[in-house]
Design a protein around this nucleic acid. Sequence first.
DNA 1: TGACAGAGTGTCCTTCTAACACTATCTGTA
DNA 2: TACAGATAGTGTTAGAAGGACACTCTGTCA
Lengths: 230, 230
Amino acid sequence: MPHSYRYPRAALTVDCVIFGYDTEDLKVLLIQRDSPPFEGRWALPGGFVDVGEPLEEAARRELKEETGVEKVYLEQLYTFGDDVKRDPRERVVSVAYYALAKLSDHRVQAATDARNAAWFQVADAPSLAFDHDQVLEMALTRLKGKVRYQPIGFELLPPKFTLTQLQRLYETLLEASLDKRNFRKKLLAMGLLEELDEIEQDVAHRAARLYRFDKRAYRDLQKRGLHFEL
Amino acid sequence: MPHSYRYPRAALTVDCVIFGYDTEDLKVLLIQRDSPPFEGRWALPGGFVDVGEPLEEAARRELKEETGVEKVYLEQLYTFGDDVKRDPRERVVSVAYYALAKLSDHRVQAATDARNAAWFQVADAPSLAFDHDQVLEMALTRLKGKVRYQPIGFELLPPKFTLTQLQRLYETLLEASLDKRNFRKKLLAMGLLEELDEIEQDVAHRAARLYRFDKRAYRDLQKRGLHFEL
DNA sequence: TGACAGAGTGTCCTTCTAACACTATCTGTA
DNA sequence: TACAGATAGTGTTAGAAGGACACTCTGTCA
C-alpha cells in the first residue's frame, strides 16, 4: 500500500558507531552489506526509521537485528544530511549514534540478519560504504574529546579492573602516554574508584588490585559540577 | 503532483536557535506562528527541508525567510525525533541548529514572511510552540558548555569592544561573576586579543581601550591544540 | 633460586588559580 | 573650577594542582 505526499520526502535512517575496547586496542563494530548499494562492503550497522518509531529506538533495533548487540548506552552524534547524494539511490538523511561497549559483554552474533558482523580495530578498519568513514571519524573525534572531561572510559572496561588497565585505556583513547604515579594519584583523588579486596587472577607476575567504578560518587560529583580533566 | 513511497515517511524540518547579545542580556530570536498548529504562539524559526536541499542550507533559508537574518555561523545542535507526537499533525523529525549573532548586525526585518519576528530575553521568553522550549534549553546548555573551552564569546560582540564588555558577556553566559584583574590577565595572556589605538566614545566616565579578536592567532592556536578554559 | 614482569609508592619543583584594593581618567554639575 | 560620580586600569601573594622522576615489592615460572 503506497503512501503519497504533496512534496517528495527524504528517507530517514539511523547509523550506529559502537566502540569496544579489548585490553589492547580500540575496536569498532561493523557489518558487511548483503545487498546493493555497496554490496559486500563493510558499513556501520543501521537502517531505515519506521514512521512511528522514535529515533533512538530505531538505532537500538537495527543494532540488535544486525549484530545481536543490545543494552548499550547510545548517544546521538550528528545528523548527516548536507550531502544530498550520500546515498546513491535517493536523498537519505541519517542520524548517527555512538556508544561505548564492553567487548567482553558483547560477543557478536555473526550473521543474525543474514549479515556478517565483526569488530575491527579502529586503526585499520576497511574503507566503509556510503559516507561512513566520515561518520566513524567524527565519532572518534567526539569520543576523544569527551573522554577528557567525562569519565566515560569506565564503560569500556569490565566491572572490575586494575588501574593499569584503566591507564592503558586512557592512553589508547588519548593517544598519549601517561605517568603511572600521576595517573593513579589523580584518579584516586577523584573518589570515583572503589578499591576492592580482590586481586587479578592467573597472571604471571605480581597480581594487581581490582577496582570498581563508584557510580553513586559519580552522580554526586556531577551535581556539584564535575571537573574530570585528565 | 503527489509522490508515493512503499512505506510512510516522517517529515523532516530544521529549527534555528539564534542567540544574540545586547550589552546587557542574552537574547534569542523567535517568530510568531501565523497558521495552525500553535497559531499565534511564538516558536523558533524553521521549516520543512526540500528533498534536494542540504540540511544546513535549509536552516539558513528558513532563517532568512522568516526573520531576515543571514550570514550567521550555524552549528548543528541535536536532532529531535524521539517523541513521535512532537508535531500534532504527523511524525516530524527536526534537526536543530544554533548560532551566535551580533545583535547590532542583525536588526530583524519584522514580518518578512507575513510573520512577526523579534528578539526575546532568554530569561523571560514565552512558552514556545511544539517542543521548542526543550530545544532552546538544550541550545542554552550547549552554549554555556562550549563557551568555556572555545572563545565563541567573540561572535556576540561588535568587532571592537572593551574588556569590560567582554567580561560582562562571559558573566552573563556563565552566570557567574568574574574577577576583573584575573579575567584580564588570563585573556590577554592567550594572545587572542589585539589592542587597538582607539577608545570608547561618548561615555560619561573614563573611556576604555578597544580591542579586537585576533582570528589569525586563534587559528594558529587551534592547530596546536587549544586550551581556552575560563 | 634467580630471572622476569609488572605492581606499587613520594617528593620536589613549577605552574596555575584565586583572593584581594587602590589610583587614574573622564564627564557633568554646582 | 572643583568635586562628585562612574568606570578604567593595574600586581602581589599564598595555596592548589600538575608534571617530572626511579626504585623496591611480589608473584610466577623455568
